[in-house]
Design a protein around this nucleic acid. Structure first.
Lengths: 249, 249
DNA sequence: GTCTATAAGATGATAGAC
DNA sequence: GTCTATCATCTTATAGAC
């Protein structure tokens, strides 16, 4: 009981009713008063921000509506007023940034393809695709970091990871695959999909910033050093893609 | 409400009391009767197996003691009798296979180093290190698949991922890094740590078998095709390691 | 839009009989 | 070792007053 290990994540099993969690020693009853909120339309965003933060740290079942409300500085009933069921709140959180995430990445690689027509490099293409999320995590404020962690966990979830990630993120990845075909004409589609799979795992783990690398390396490398992370990833993955290209006819 | 998206994972925040979840429409009360159990000492293992399965799918907070007991075919009170608090049950699940996981991998790379002294290849070394978990998932029975998924989620968890994975898995990875230094003399330690980081993400995502690759590729590639996965990963990562070696003096 | 009050139910954990 | 019964507490969600 001194230093407990670490339970992992999960997602709501479709038809499971609510699932909760006892909550901190007694969820200090008292006036909600943490974040800014109240006033006008920003109440909604306050709730989303709080939920995003908490879900990214404790997962769907590890967070209670009461905690979200408290962190947002609003009343519990307001959460339901704005978002309905807990599950709908989660979806709203996930959706909020998904569109930006995808659109900016597609735009980035399209721009790259336009500006380097006939002279695209693998490194350049991957960098264009990977840079946006790293930039958001670095300079987009805490919300983007939380969202990245949420995506990382969702991606790793066996029950919903496949379906959820596919629905929200596959379109942009398909566009990347299209351009990879141009840059790597010898690669079969299977090569490209497996290549992306390897890169995807590295990307989400990195964006999750779990601090594991820091521990492993004794502080030599840092999870939060996203500039290095992106640089290494582009080089690592580019070489990886080349190495697996041409595996299958 | 028709096709809900997908909340993710989480872990127990150290001092949070219990955290639960309402449970299926009414957790069919009735005689436990699913798995084999009863008899003698295998009750304990039945509980661990059930918990492993459920935790890997729904995460710590997404599982109730009652569900574990039901799936194990034992009484709720027995779970507490054998493992105490819910958190201790989780730790027991995590620990059970961690030792095997690490020892076999270390043994595999040590054997490889011994048998190929002076002639180690990067591909051979990585293959030796990666093959064991793939083999367990393929032929070790469902328990190993569940455990892999559990590890995948834990690795992606921002709150506990770093600490937990470090405690249980870093020793074997350190040994790998030692041998990588031999094979890649030009690489700095930072290169090797970042390289491993990229590989680690791919590995855990793959072992999680989320089915995402299947969807993305329209069935062309399959998450469950772990032989292909391992093959691609060795080639992808070997090239990746080489590409980042020598980055920093 | 915001809060009070409360319904209706599920949870972790334990005491104690067998 | 195993099960019955139960406590104390927490949870989601919704009326309904303001």
């Amino acid at each position: 009981m001194s230093k407990p290990s670490a339970p992992p994540a999960a997602e709501p099993p479709v038809e499971r009713s609510h699932r909760t969690r006892p909550g901190t020693p007694a969820a200090k009853r008292g006036r909600p008063a943490k974040n800014q909120a109240g006033r006008n339309g920003e109440t909604r965003d306050s709730i989303l921000d709080a939920a995003e933060d908490l879900f990214s740290k404790h997962g769907f079942y590890g967070v209670t509506i009461r905690e979200v409300a408290r962190e947002a500085g609003v009343d519990t009933a307001l959460v339901h007023y704005y978002f309905g069921a807990k599950r709908d709140l989660f979806d709203a959180v996930f959706l909020r940034r998904a569109e930006v995430w995808n659109n900016e990445r597609v735009e980035a690689i399209n721009r790259y393809a336009r500006e380097h027509e006939g002279a695209m490099t693998l490194e350049g293409l991957l960098e264009a695709f990977l840079r946006p999320p790293f930039q958001w995590s670095l300079k987009g404020g805490p919300g983007w970091k939380h969202y990245s962690a949420l995506v990382a966990q969702t991606n790793a979830n066996p029950t919903f990871g496949g379906e959820t990630m596919a629905r929200y993120f596959d379109p942009s990845i398909r566009r990347l695959i299209d351009l990879l075909r141009v840059v790597l004409p010898d690669a079969s589609d299977a090569d490209l999909y497996w290549g992306w799979h390897n890169l995807s795992g590295a990307l989400t783990l990195t964006l999750g910033e779990t601090g594991r690398l820091d521990r492993l390396s004794g502080g030599l490398c840092q999870s939060g050093d996203l500039d290095s992370a992106c640089e290494y990833m582009v080089r690592f993955a580019s070489a990886g893609f080349r190495a697996v290209s041409g595996t299958r006819a």
